[in-house]
Design a protein around this nucleic acid. Structure first.
Length: 953
RNA sequence: GGGCGAGUGGCGGAAUUGGUAGACGCGUAGGUCUCAAAAACCUAUGAGAGCAAUCUCGUGAGAGUUCGAUUCUCUCCUCGCCCACCA
């Protein structure tokens, strides 16, 4: 029998598809709904890797399926072609970035074709084409005109040896440049920015509206990083006695009474003024030291010891007028809030560490409140009556060893200390000593320390069956000796005593409140949880939330505070001192200043006569023809902006362009945009979770607000990520590990259809996993099997009952799985069907026809070939998805599992909807069931119709 | 340190309104065909016991709820990813 020659067949059909144009998408097809199915376009590195295959093949399964389901599907492709690698390669190979890029695109087009997708190549976009970047420049002008683009001085990483700005990611080790190992400096440079922060709230709030992976949404939310709190004004006097306003942002204005010092970022503008003569030198040294560190490095220093310096000056705490010292430290970042903080060491971990290091006062203003609300019997019952009680927690030290008394309750599984309610006018210290004697028996209990603190705790007291709101007073005692009295029996039953070391106790204690008390006694740390205000005058007794509201109201009256929201998101620096990007369309005129290039003059073309090796500024400065121009306003001499745009800008709007890629009047026509957008399904890597996806959302929102062509807020209605394919060894593929799988080689070996199908079959699409060449071979075997099955002498008749059922079941399963990206189970059910048909003595052509239709989205070449051999003249890829016969799937008989005490003892074939009695009768006939019943009477019988019968004895 | 996710045969993985754990594929073993090999095909394949029917154990560990738990709850362990001085 003839074998399936994948090389010949796949090439044959790729040619035919291209010639006949069956994948060209019209903007409108009568009776069909439009569906925009998008994949992330590749960077033309010159080599398509398996990750691309995984992305594009997976998306293609679904796109093809949706097409068969009757949608008019747009699945375009293009190239994200600007970027640094082209420049580096050009310098290395002495070519031009343009040549390098376009020859790579040519190579990659061929590789992309070999996947066999339904990409509509007539809509291709290439971001480095002047016809494309003309509109990227238009987008810049659009932002500029609407106040969303501005130029400003910005602190950035500067390498004095390379004479250029480098990205945070390019700074390595102890703050050195990754290329030349020179110490990087911080320098202020003019940069073009996009005001993405204008949309910070919407970028968070609109996440609710879109069908994206939760993880991706969370990442975006964290990236934008909205914190609600207040801005508070501290007044500080400088060395000359002049008063300055020091604003701080805080999310915890409730802790203001605990602010015992202030910290400014070393770059804060007031630092020099606030440094006293005595402290000047220390401050200057510290500022110099931090200048050398990048922001990235400062973050990496977390966990290490806090550093800083005292300015010598003091500020007034607005709540109580107390003078608090002002420090500088690099854990405060100039880029966030006001670059200054109020430090509350008792309730902030970082401030705590700083206070410990510099020996600053720590004032507790929030008594901890713990609520036991984990599910279980001892959980606090919010709605039930509450009994409030003051109680002592007795921490007892051993008379000789360095051990402490732990108590294990028998009523519940609490493990902690001796606890006793304070009443009868006793002090906490007296109560504790008495309880230790009564409950455990020790006679001579000596008071060491009454901490005078309160820890609030809400829980359900199982022993007394009461809802409790306890106010715990921790007190430390020491036993003088071993002498004990006889303990009452009922007390003995309640608890067991244990003696443990400090560390053992920490593990032993199993309640959050007791854990906190124990930690507080030894070591201690900042308390950042919920609580009740103390030491805070008019805030005392309030909860955290109440106190936040109240203090803002009070301070607002004196104009010392206001409600505020702060974001982690910064404006987007879009200018790059590079050649291979879209030039920023701005001209500088001595007379008129900064002038945008008029739209009619776009594109501002990239000059070709530049010296790429030029450093310091953009290589564009070396082209005099480019730089020297006329002012569009006054016609006088002017110079062009020489920076180019971040390539992320090119990819922030490319999905609009696909709908109208040849339009030279506008970036895309409104009519076409309306027909296709927003994108119905976007498939791509999770590595773009923040940057590309966030920028695209920003662009869409800006266009919605200031351009009449778009009226929606989110560009991508649904988003899915493919997983990462690993090498055979389970490691990430890398050249140095030598585990890179070249897709072209695999295609050569087993064919594109087999590679595609293995991609679908290897596991859940969003999970990825190791590439197993044997697995690919297995899929190839399956395709060969299908080829042989279709090449058999098939019978020309209607499907018989068996075939009809198998086929219908498969249509249902595959149709349910593909839209959900469950390709592995869809393919598995196709294998089952193929096995069933192969095993039959006689197979109808009709059954195989159905199999081919279902296989078409996965193996487009093979199915097309067999379809033709079946005598069809029209492409299989223009056929509709088959419908299944509901009646054929319904089975008359049901397999009922008979269990005895939950263990399977027999299977019964019964007609559907059998009554419990008849099933039970039948079950009783089974030898095995009888054996396990061993004459006993069933205590209970559970029957789930058509599924299970469980006899309990 | 924080957040999220995951742990099922030798391997990739299937199965959830709680109802026969291991579909499908890989690998392995034996066989058919062949001078031989490859390919292909057939059979077996979670572990243990048994001639067999069949039984016992088994979804990271431990507990709980239930007639019944891979699925639900709690505690713990391991791995992965992301974020990480953001006040």
């Amino acid at each position: 029998m003839e074998n399936y020659n994948h090389q010949k067949i796949e090439e044959k059909w790729q040619d035919i598809w291209e010639k006949t144009g069956i994948y060209h998408t019209k903007d409108e097809v009568r009776g069909k709904e439009n569906l925009y199915h998008l994949v992330m376009f590749p960077y033309p590195s010159g080599d398509l890797h398996l990750g691309h295959w995984y992305n594009y093949a997976g998306a293609d399964f679904r796109a093809r399926y949706m097409r068969m389901k009757g949608y008019n599907v747009l699945s375009p492709i293009g190239f994200d072609a600007f970027g640094l690698p082209a420049e580096n390669a050009a310098i290395k190979n002495k070519t031009h970035p343009k040549e390098w890029t376009y020859s790579n695109i040519e190579k990659m087009r061929k590789q992309l074709r070999s996947i066999g997708t339904i990409f509509d190549w007539e809509r291709e976009v290439i971001t480095c084409d002047p016809g494309y970047y003309k509109w990227t420049q238009w987008m810049f002008l659009f932002m500029y005109k609407n106040g969303l683009a501005y130029k400003t001085k910005k602190v950035a990483n500067w390498c004095p040896s390379c004479n250029t700005v480098i990205a945070n990611e390019q700074v390595v080790g102890n703050g050195v440049c990754e290329r030349c190992q020179t110490q990087v400096e911080q320098r202020e440079i003019d940069q073009w920015m996009f005001k993405i922060t204008e949309y910070a709230d919407e970028l968070i709030d609109d996440l609710e509206k879109i069908d994206w992976p939760e993880k991706t949404k969370t990442m975006q939310q964290n990236w934008v990083g909205r914190s609600e709190g207040a801005e508070v004004l501290f007044k500080a006097k400088d060395t000359s006695g002049k008063e300055h306003d020091l604003w701080v942002f805080t999310t915890r204005p409730d802790t203001l009474f605990g602010a015992t010092f202030m910290v400014l970022a070393p770059e804060h503008p007031l630092v020099t003024k606030l440094a006293t003569d005595k402290q000047k030198k220390a401050v200057e040294t510290y500022v110099e030291k931090t200048k050398k560190k990048t922001e990235l490095q400062r973050m990496e220093d977390e966990g290490k010891e806090k550093t800083g310096a005292f300015t010598g000056s003091y500020a007034k705490n607005p709540v109580n007028g107390k003078e608090i010292p002002i420090y500088i430290a690099d854990y405060v970042l100039m880029g966030y809030g006001h670059g200054a903080i109020m430090a509350v060491p008792a309730h902030d971990e970082r401030d705590w560490e700083f206070a410990k290091k510099f020996d600053l006062p720590i004032v507790e203003v929030l008594a901890p409140l713990f609520v036991n609300n984990r599910e279980g019997e001892d959980a606090f019952r919010e709605k039930d009556p509450i009994k409030e009680r003051d109680a002592v927690v007795a921490l007892v030290k051993h008379w000789k060893e360095d051990k402490y008394l732990g108590v294990k309750w028998t009523v519940n599984d609490w493990q902690g200390f001796v606890i006793g309610g304070i009443d009868n006018g006793e002090s906490a210290a007296e109560t504790g000593a008495r309880e230790v004697t009564e409950e455990i028996g020790y006679k001579n209990v000596k008071l060491v320390t009454d901490y005078g603190k309160i820890i609030h705790s809400k829980f359900y007291q199982l022993g007394k069956k009461e809802n409790r709101f306890a106010h715990f007073h921790p007190v430390l005692y020491q036993l003088e000796d071993n002498e004990r009295i006889e303990v009452a029996d009922h007390e003995k039953k309640l608890h067991k005593e244990v003696w443990l070391t400090k560390n053992e106790m920490s593990d032993f204690v199993n309640r959050d409140d007791m854990q906190w008390i124990w930690d507080g006694v030894f070591g201690g740390k900042a308390y950042e949880g919920e609580g009740i205000l103390v030491n805070s005058e008019y805030l005392n007794g309030l909860s955290k939330e109440e106190a936040i509201k109240k203090v803002i109201v009070e301070l607002s009256k004196k104009k010392l505070a206001k409600k505020a929201i702060n974001y982690r998101l910064r404006d987007w620096i879009i200018s790059r001192q590079r050649y291979w990007g879209a030039p920023i369309p701005i001209v500088y005129c001595d007379k008129c200043g900064e002038v945008p290039v008029p739209e009619e003059e776009l594109p501002v073309k990239l000059p070709e006569d530049v010296d790429l090796k030029s450093t310091g500024q953009s290589p564009l400065v070396t082209s005099e023809k480019f730089v020297n121009t006329k002012c569009p306003k006054c016609g006088g001499k002017a110079k062009r902006e020489t920076d180019t745009m971040d390539t992320f800008l090119c990819s922030s709007w490319y999905y609009f362009r696909y709908t109208d890629n040849k339009n030279d009047k506008e970036f895309a026509g409104k009519e076409k945009l309306t027909k296709w957008l927003p994108v119905d399904m976007y498939v791509g890597g999770a590595e773009h979770s923040v940057l590309h996806l966030l920028y695209s959302r920003f662009f869409t929102k800006a266009l919605r607000d200031y351009d009449k062509r778009i009226d929606f807020s989110e560009p991508f209605t649904a988003l899915r990520h493919q997983g990462t394919i690993l090498g055979e060894d389970g490691q990430k593929m890398s050249k140095s590990l030598g585990n890179v799988i070249a897709p072209d080689k695999e295609v050569n070996r087993v064919g594109a259809d087999a590679v595609r199908m293995y991609i679908g079959f290897m596991g859940p699409y969003n999970q990825g996993g190791p590439w197993n060449p044997n697995g690919v071979t297995g899929v190839k075997r399956f395709l060969d099997k299908v080829f042989r099955l279709a090449s058999r002498n098939l019978v020309e008749r209607e499907m018989d009952a068996f075939e009809a059922r198998s086929v219908s079941k498969t249509i249902k399963k595959v149709g349910e799985d593909i839209p959900e990206f469950k390709f592995n189970t869809a393919i598995s059910s196709l294998m089952v069907l193929t096995n069933e048909l192969t095993d039959a003595k006689e197979v109808s052509r009709e059954a195989v026809r159905y199999l081919l239709l279902m296989l078409a989205p996965f193996a487009p070449h093979l199915t097309e070939e067999l379809w033709e051999r079946f005598g069809n003249t029209k492409s299989i890829h223009l056929e509709p998805w088959p419908k299944y016969d509901k009646k054929a799937i319904e089975e008359e008989m049901a397999t009922i599992v008979v269990q005895v005490n939950g263990k399977v003892r027999a299977n019964l074939e019964m007609s559907k909807n059998s009554a419990q009695e008849s099933v039970l009768d039948e079950a009783m006939k089974s030898e095995n069931v009888k054996k396990f019943l061993s004459g006993k009477k069933p205590k209970k019988v559970i029957y789930v119709k058509d599924k299970i019968l469980n006899i309990v004895i």
